[in-house]
Design a protein around this nucleic acid. Sequence first.
DNA 1: AATTATTTTAACCATATGGTTAATTTACTG
DNA 2: CAGTAAATTAACCATATGGTTAAAATAATT
Lengths: 202, 202
Amino acid sequence: MVKAQDTETQILDAARRVFIRKGLSGARMQEIADEAGINKALLHYYFRSKEKLFDVILRETFAKIFPSLPDLMINPQLTFRESLTKFVDGYITAIQHNPFLPAFVINEINQNPDKIAQVFETIGFDGAKIKQVQEVLPQRLGLSKEKTREVIVTVISLCVFPFVGKPVLKTLLFDNDDKAFEAFLEERKARVVEIAMSMIQS
Amino acid sequence: MVKAQDTETQILDAARRVFIRKGLSGARMQEIADEAGINKALLHYYFRSKEKLFDVILRETFAKIFPSLPDLMINPQLTFRESLTKFVDGYITAIQHNPFLPAFVINEINQNPDKIAQVFETIGFDGAKIKQVQEVLPQRLGLSKEKTREVIVTVISLCVFPFVGKPVLKTLLFDNDDKAFEAFLEERKARVVEIAMSMIQS
DNA sequence: AATTATTTTAACCATATGGTTAATTTACTG
DNA sequence: CAGTAAATTAACCATATGGTTAAAATAATT
């Protein structure tokens, strides 16, 4: 049983790469097996079916892409501005390391919205925690529930969209210059905080 | 030849629905044929292959989702605020009528970024027009090229992201209340303008 | 009406694909 | 080391899938 854990990990690594690149319907079990350097039957031996394997990856990816939003409010040692800066910085940096995750999640969730409930539970975002976010954050910001939602949607939109829209934005605004686009994302971290703060003050 | 045009339209209507719902790899020629109420061979008779049919839909969809950005600057009778309001309003409304287009475009373009050049040309966004946007708009706003990009990315992010992130946002912030989410989008039209304007003034 | 051209369909075809199985190899245990 | 359990593989299988074809139906032309 020395190789068991190892094989499982190899499969997950390969599956992650292939699923994120091609999506559920675009991925091929044979391709995953090849990329893992193992026999295709092993995929079923360890994970039973394509769907099951996919679900593991989807949940795992979800966990990566939903950083602890609660951190935004739970830490009372920091001012809100500091919390927000930390959040935006960490979030954009995380996506920079996995730039294809957002498009992957968006696509698969839109394809199968019913999965969202289970997936959220898997990562510990149950109803209780959701309510917590919905109630504690407005209190801390001294804003209405509605206004708080505005701020959250704004922050997330600004952090995530540039990554999913990258091919188009790069073509339209950056003359396909990768370096320039990366630099832009870097500057954005501070800018997003400014935009959000100005919403709160007004 | 009375039915020719009609059949072609029926195929396109069906293909649009299926491709946008399932994407290129998820769509099935048989499903498109069934939805169009015709024999599968007709799909190939009219459009040769799945890819060719898909490309027609992708280009068409692209045209829908890239409204005349140039309008933002060409019309000098309006103040910039008025232009922007018109743009944001029109853009969000357009997406409201086709809420799945953004996720579709994002997914397919990320899957195949090389297609972006041809697709852009098809809708008349050639190099010349792109340069025009990049140069005229900063001039009109009295901002640097960089700052102008910030504003554009912000506006597009804020307009588009809520639609692609809808399942997640609805669960997380709106207790899955569709009505509430729609109302939020409606309010957003004005809010997005405010955010963009405050960026310009500072 | 007869002939020709176009449109439509049913039946196929080759291949791809997710999944299974029986046998083989490797690792573990007494 | 023999025997058992777990891991791995090659060969299959049933079905789905994009695409083709030859014949039938419909429309256009003379």
